[in-house]
Design a protein around this nucleic acid. Structure first.
Lengths: 337, 337
DNA sequence: TTGAAAGCGCTACCAA
DNA sequence: TTGGTAGCGCTTTCAA
């Protein structure tokens, strides 16, 4: 509070300026003010400042599930990237529910966050129009939308799906099932990559075989993967390779496969996606596609910062990381190659 | 904005009251206002409201590492608990660094969060005095301090350490090493539990054997566990049981042990702590102590809410969950019992 | 039931 | 270099 001003025989204005290293202030008074600030342990009320400057120094992040290590990693990296500029991050979870997500967007908007970063579970683009109306910059993370010219930071999902599938093919798999993700850019992209790889396989096109699952947030896909795998194993001719939408799904698949007495990778090779941090420590170390979630988070952070710092709207930008295949035991048949 | 008031021929005051269902407002005008609100898509500016009411409807959460599933789980549960009352959560990470943590506390204080929830990496109690000075309610999570009469939500670490160790003893282990955690209540408590269990072992007291590690946030303990295990395995007589401070450490230990050709649990049994969500899917499914981090997060949330809602200071409260042993393959020798 | 006045704690703008 | 005046968008008296 600014009885500090009174104590020093200054005006609040001067104190305010001193606090912010505002240009026209004499070094002497600045020092004087700063010392008193220190003594009293005063900290300016950021909500008041926000009201007048219109900047809250807060980024809003919406993820489907904080417990999913992929998003936790993004959150962590984002938080770190913006922290140095004194930004905080308001993190909320949509639990993969579009309606809840819309509410969260409204909340963040009401709180006047400086930018919204969102790995959206949305089907339509409507919510984003709302954000645009409020002139709040926003960035799509991980998942993007075809018809929406928005900032995007994520990975090339088609390439990811393709690499994963090609790898399985190169390991000698011929009956390759894809356990697909939701109807979002990530699920769709990886599916497309899977198809591309199969159709251009070396020894002639391989048959497609896609299993859907309904991803719910609470189990992160493990239960779904487990279930899907059960069905697959009940078949007369089970697959010899499975490309899973993500690592949690792969984890569930792995469990089911082992329980049923199949060997990984000898009987069934498994590839995941995301390279979540524990994937190398699973029952059978998991071959997966690394999408560098840390880089995505950091990139999104720096992009958000630049958007906020330059007050005028910047043209939408896409920053897409190249996925990398990480080969581990779960797919290494050594049959071929 | 309240040109809505003007449009309806009302005063801003009336609109404001209508918005908040404030008592004295006629049902008719309330409806009228609400409808207009809807049409325009107006949302009140929460920062302005915060300035005058002094309540930001925001909880501040500080964890050592968001990537550690234990804390991610807490964050998720907390977020869910307070969301229904329209609170948001500002999540920051201290990266296990006391100095950084102090800065984050100052940030949260400056932002005037309604309550601070913190799994502290602090050595001293000084920071908390600061929080108290600002009259901001705060709750310690997971880690508490001997000399501090503060609200605490966490687990009984002594019991956890004891259960883990007793389990190893019951499995026939006689050379049991504890890879200990940091000098905080969690590390200290589990260590004490370990000692208690050894000294009261059925066949007479067993020797203590404690390995320190310096937990850094970035690897969540895996690398530390890996290193510690290497040293252990270099010994002439390696241990036959290892109780690890937490699951990430256990993960690292497991890797080293397997790499060196030892069998788990036949040669070396391993027990972790935390029951992080992937612990059942590790190379060897991990026996661990469940501390129900979801319950901790939810409890902390409801406690925080009750503190905030009742404006007057409540007497400090401790909510301590009872840990549970989760037996999996990593310790199941079947030698005895 | 409604609204005028005052002000939350701070910063922008301009005059001194 | 300093400080008075205004006002950010709301809510809180309290009087009409």
């Amino acid at each position: 509070m600014k009885d500090i001003a009174w104590e020093l025989g200054l005006s609040v204005v001067t104190v305010s300026k001193a606090l912010r290293n505002h240009g026209d202030i004499s070094e002497a008074t600045r020092k004087r003010v700063m010392r008193r600030i220190e003594e009293v342990g005063y900290r300016p009320n950021l909500t008041a400042r926000a009201l007048i400057t219109g900047r809250t120094y807060t980024m809003g992040l919406i993820v489907p599930d904080l417990l999913h290590a992929f998003f936790a990693q993004i959150a962590k990296a984002l938080s770190r990237a913006v922290r140095q500029k004194n930004y905080g991050v308001l993190i909320t979870s949509s639990e993969e529910d579009p309606e809840l997500e819309r509410q969260e967007i409204a909340q963040l908007l009401a709180r006047r966050v400086d930018a919204i970063l969102i790995a959206s579970a949305q089907w339509s683009v409507e919510s984003f129009r709302r954000i645009e109306e409020q002139n709040t910059p926003y960035i799509l993370i991980d998942r993007h939308f075809a018809g929406l010219a928005a900032n995007f930071v994520g990975s090339d999902d088609v390439a990811a799906g393709r690499m994963a599938t090609e790898h399985l093919i190169s390991q000698g798999c011929r009956r390759i099932v894809h356990i697909r993700g939701p109807q979002l850019s990530t699920g769709l992209g990886r599916l497309e990559g899977y198809r591309l790889a199969l159709s251009s396989a070396a020894g002639g096109p391989l048959p497609e075989d896609v299993m859907p699952v309904g991803l719910s947030a609470d189990d992160r896909g493990e239960a779904d993967g487990y279930e899907a795998a059960q069905k697959l194993l009940d078949r007369a001719a089970p697959p010899d390779g499975i490309f899973c939408f993500n690592d949690p799904v792969a984890t569930g698949v792995m469990q089911a496969v082992l329980e049923r007495g199949f060997r990984i990778p000898e009987d069934i090779a498994i590839v995941g996606c995301g390279n979540v941090l524990y994937s190398g420590h699973l029952r059978v170390p998991l071959t997966t596609i690394d999408q560098d979630s840390a880089a995505i988070g950091a990139e999104a952070g720096s992009l958000a910062l630049s958007m906020v710092e330059s007050r005028k709207p910047l043209p939408p930008e896409s920053r897409i990381t190249k996925p990398k295949l990480v080969v581990r035991a779960s797919s290494l048949k050594g049959t071929k190659k």
